[in-house]
């Protein structure tokens, strides 16, 4: 049995999912080259996983993350940008017995 759930991770914030803490270290919203660097923390263990848009990355046995959506890229010509605005959408797939950590 596995559980699959879409999770919105706010930029500049830490989003809990089960006993995991998910955060975005960085991302690119450039067309054709979109990716996100996702921090996956469980207790003292922390992993940094780079995922291309639409791709799935195995974080560890029984736990994978697919990158569904990234914000559009920031442009200097748009002027000063706020911090913490926007979100990255991922789908977390976890084996139930894994307990997501």
């Amino acid at each position: 049995m596995t559980t699959e759930e879409q999770v919105a991770i706010a930029l500049g914030a830490v989003t809990p999912w089960r006993d995991l803490q998910l955060a975005i270290k960085g991302f690119s919203g450039e067309t054709g080259a979109s990716y996100a660097k996702v921090i996956v923390r469980a207790g003292d263990d922390s992993q940094l996983v780079r995922i291309e848009l639409g791709e799935t990355a195995e974080v560890r046995d029984g736990l994978s993350i697919r990158l569904d959506e990234v914000p559009p890229p920031s442009r200097p010509e748009d002027g000063p940008a706020p911090t913490g605005r926007g979100r990255v959408l991922v789908t977390v797939r976890a084996a139930d017995e894994d307990g997501a950590g």
């Binding site: 930029l11 500049g12 960085g26 991302f27 660097k37 920031s74 748009d78 911090t83 926007g86």
Partner: peptide, 19 residues
């Protein structure tokens, strides 16, 4: 200090779009 408008800073320990 903040990285507003910097989506993926090059520094290994600093988070993008963060203050």
């Amino acid at each position: 200090a903040d990285t507003g408008g910097m989506d993926d800073p090059s520094h290994d320990s600093i988070v993008g779009n963060h203050a």
